[in-house]
Measured scan of single mutants.
Amino acid sequence: QEELVKAFKALLKEEKFSSQGEIVAALQEQGFDNINQSKVSRMLTKFGAVRTRNAKMEMVYCLPAELGV
């Protein structure tokens, strides 16, 4: 569980995922086979993730800066 949270936060820091499906796929690539869209959705809510525009003006998920991840 701890490893999943770390990987999840690291992915969001990249600010390149525009959908929950993309986050699920990226986590599965890292070996988290039991991850699915509903789990990702709950984690996004739990950590207060928001959708914002990145440098390329794409809408992407990211974590609020005050979490200091």
Rank of each mutant, 00 (worst) to 15 (best):
Q1T: 12
Q1Y: 15
Q1F: 13
Q1W: 14
E2A: 13
E2G: 10
E2Y: 11
E3M: 12
E3I: 08
L4K: 01
L4P: 01
L4Q: 02
V5Y: 15
V5H: 14
V5G: 07
K6E: 13
A7R: 06
F8W: 01
F8N: 00
F8R: 01
F8L: 09
F8T: 03
K9N: 05
K9W: 10
K9F: 15
A10W: 07
A10Y: 07
L11M: 08
L12I: 06
L12E: 00
L12S: 00
L12F: 04
K13P: 01
K13C: 06
K13I: 10
K13S: 10
K13E: 08
E14F: 06
E14C: 14
E14I: 06
E15K: 08
E15C: 15
E15D: 05
E15Y: 06
K16C: 15
K16A: 08
K16W: 04
F17N: 02
F17R: 03
S18L: 08
S18I: 08
S18N: 06
S19H: 09
S19G: 05
S19N: 09
Q20R: 12
Q20S: 12
Q20N: 07
G21R: 14
G21W: 13
G21H: 12
G21I: 13
E22L: 06
I23R: 00
I23Q: 00
I23L: 13
I23G: 01
I23M: 07
V24I: 09
V24F: 05
A25V: 11
A25D: 08
A25Q: 13
A25H: 10
A26M: 06
A26H: 10
A26E: 07
L27M: 06
Q28M: 11
Q28I: 13
E29Q: 11
E29A: 14
E29V: 10
E29P: 01
E29M: 11
E29W: 07
E29L: 11
E29D: 10
Q30E: 06
Q30G: 06
Q30F: 07
Q30V: 07
Q30C: 06
Q30A: 11
G31W: 02
G31Y: 02
G31L: 02
F32Y: 08
F32T: 00
F32K: 01
D33G: 13
D33T: 14
D33F: 13
D33A: 14
N34E: 10
N34Q: 10
N34W: 14
I35G: 01
I35A: 06
I35T: 03
N36D: 14
N36M: 04
N36I: 04
Q37F: 09
Q37Y: 09
Q37V: 13
Q37C: 06
S38T: 11
S38R: 14
S38V: 12
S38M: 12
K39L: 15
K39W: 14
K39G: 09
K39Y: 11
V40I: 08
V40Q: 00
V40P: 00
S41H: 11
S41I: 08
S41P: 00
S41R: 13
S41V: 09
S41N: 10
R42C: 10
R42V: 13
M43E: 01
M43C: 02
M43Y: 05
M43S: 00
L44C: 02
L44R: 00
L44S: 01
L44N: 01
L44Y: 01
T45S: 10
T45E: 14
T45K: 15
T45G: 08
T45F: 10
K46Y: 15
K46V: 12
K46G: 08
F47I: 12
F47T: 06
F47C: 03
G48V: 03
G48N: 08
G48R: 07
A49G: 05
A49S: 04
A49M: 03
A49T: 03
V50L: 07
V50H: 08
R51A: 05
R51E: 05
T52M: 15
T52P: 02
T52V: 15
R53P: 09
R53G: 04
N54G: 05
N54I: 02
N54P: 02
A55L: 06
A55M: 06
A55K: 08
A55P: 06
K56V: 07
K56M: 10
M57I: 03
M57P: 03
M57H: 13
M57K: 10
E58C: 02
E58K: 08
M59E: 10
M59S: 06
M59G: 04
V60C: 03
V60P: 02
Y61T: 02
Y61E: 02
Y61C: 02
Y61V: 03
C62T: 15
C62W: 07
L63W: 06
L63K: 02
L63M: 07
L63S: 03
L63V: 04
L63I: 09
L63A: 04
P64Q: 05
P64G: 05
P64I: 05
A65R: 08
A65C: 05
E66W: 09
E66C: 15
E66M: 07
E66V: 06
G68I: 10
V69I: 09
V69C: 10
V69L: 11
